[in-house]
Design a protein around this nucleic acid. Structure first.
Length: 434
RNA sequence: UGCUCAGUAGCUCAAUGGCAGAGCAUUCGGCUGUUAACCGAAGGGUUGUAGGUUCGAGCCCUACCUGAGCAGCCA
């Protein structure tokens, strides 16, 4: 009896040495030594070396194996053997090979390629080892996000992608035609999550968000995934504590379960080991002092630029939380500190190693009249926010939340230079295909 | 949108203003232990586009196109 097995199970010693097995997959690479062929076969779980010895198989089978090309799909039948010479310590001694689908001139060779070429062939690039590792880490991060909130009694509240108006009024939105009226693709589910929090207490939304800014940097996508928890009765302090516990949980889960993938990516994990709560929490004024001490040109009252964030995060061995930003540079819905009326009860989490802002959050304005004047100050259309204002009319409470960018988090944990590799099919200003 | 850089074989890159090149990939040949295998041979080019300078332009000049990095915006 010959069973179909996954390669991963072979390396995890789940298949007894000497077993006859069937593997189904694709040809990753091939080497030949005359009468001996080395087929590197991948099936999505791992890559195994399969050997075809000419005198050991029929001429027809040997020729089939000899003519296989990169990424041809195939079925191989053979015997699993322990062998020190094989990568991973196991190989398959082939008795039969069947070609399923041929692959002529596969564009991505095992040599170097530039990012533009690889992004053009993103649908095929996903078949390579590093991309497997990244996507598996992404999967684990997303699962950790959900496990964290689910384990704390949060309810997932899905928020709409079509929205009637800007959430924050600052960013540029993608506009679409919606039955002869305008609709915009959401840039945040937060306002709806607030409604959810006042209904269910602890909620989070998790979905794609869209920003039409013409950003061309390694940190920006036009379509990215964001998770946004929102908690009734939480104030700034509890919000920051939730954020640090959350990030600790994500990072430690990846470190525990994705050791191999991080090794494949060449990620030095020593700095990730430090990611334990509590994180350092500094007031905006302290952050400004760090910049002044570092000799950077910075005007008090401004938001931090990318080089500023890097300079601040370099002072710490784990993510740092900056709070009490000037309210003038923050969104209309952020509550001001009664003791410091020019500052918002806002907080950003800056990742180490120059990865920048991965979380932005705040305590929300919960007073009806204050919120009305904020909307006026920001020149936002009052009628678009009538339902949002209702939340302050009927049993308003202090509440807080934040948003975490999934792709920036993946880039940081994987140690990648660019967020374009952290999502299967990136959408950027110059990239709508594939 | 601004600044900087780049565009040459399928890919990654060379080529002082003077014959268009290499490695990999592909095809053919060789090899029973390869590890991005190796050895030998062959095919493969409107040098991003348009114009200009020059006896002569891949190289210099102008415009445009495409992309990358940085900045702003933000997660």
């Amino acid at each position: 009896m010959t069973d179909r097995v996954y390669i991963e199970d072979v390396f995890q010693h789940k298949i007894p040495d000497g077993s006859d097995v069937i593997l189904r997959g694709w040809l990753y690479n091939k080497r030949s030594s005359g009468k001996l062929l080395f087929l590197l076969v991948r099936d999505g779980t791992a890559v195994i070396q399969a050997t075809v010895y000419k005198p050991g198989v029929s001429a027809e089978i040997f020729e089939t194996a000899d003519k296989l090309t990169q990424e041809a799909s195939l079925t191989v039948i053979g015997k699993i053997k322990k062998d020190e010479r094989a990568p991973g310590g196991y190989e398959l001694q082939v008795t039969d090979v069947k070609l399923i689908g041929q692959s002529v001139d596969f564009p991505i060779t095992p040599k170097e390629h530039g990012p533009e070429f690889l992004m053009d062939y993103r649908h095929l690039w996903l078949r390579s080892k590093n991309q497997h590792a990244i996507l598996r880490v992404r999967h684990t991060i997303i699962k950790a996000i959900r496990d964290f909130f689910d384990g704390r009694g949060f309810t997932l509240v899905d928020t709409p992608i079509f929205t009637p108006a800007a959430c924050e009024g600052t960013s540029t939105l993608f506009e679409t035609d919606y039955f002869d009226t305008k609709a915009f693709l959401t840039q945040s589910g937060q306002l709806y999550a607030e409604a959810g929090a006042l209904a269910l207490g602890k909620v989070y939304c998790f979905g794609p968000t869209f920003r039409a800014e013409k950003s061309k940097t390694r940190r920006h996508l036009t379509e990215f995934w964001m998770v946004e928890p929102e908690v009734a009765f939480n104030e700034l302090k509890e919000n920051m504590e939730l954020a640090e516990d959350f990030i600790e949980y994500i990072v430690q889960t990846v470190l525990r379960t994705r050791v191999e993938e991080l090794k494949t990516l060449g990620r030095d994990t020593t700095k990730l080991q430090n990611v334990r709560a509590p994180f350092p929490k500094i007031h905006y004024d302290e952050a400004v002092k760090i910049l002044e001490d570092a000799g950077l040109k910075f005007e008090y009252g401004n938001d931090f630029g990318s080089p500023d964030e890097t300079a601040i995060s370099e002072k710490f061995d784990r993510p740092v939380i900056v709070h009490h930003y000037p309210s003038a540079i923050k969104a209309f819905y952020m509550k001001r500190d009664p003791n410091e009326p020019d500052k918002a009860l806002a907080m950003d989490v800056l990742a180490p190693e120059g990865y920048g802002e991965i979380i932005g959050g705040s305590q929300r304005e919960d007073n009806y009249d204050m919120l009305v004047s904020r909307i006026k100050e920001h020149n936002l259309p009052m009628e678009a926010f009538d339902w949002y204002l209702d939340l302050r009319k009927y049993g308003s409470v202090p509440h807080s939340g934040f948003g975490l960018g999934v792709e920036r988090t993946v880039a940081w944990i994987c140690g990648l230079q660019h967020v374009r590799e952290t999502i299967p099919f990136a959408r950027m200003i110059h990239r709508l295909k594939p």
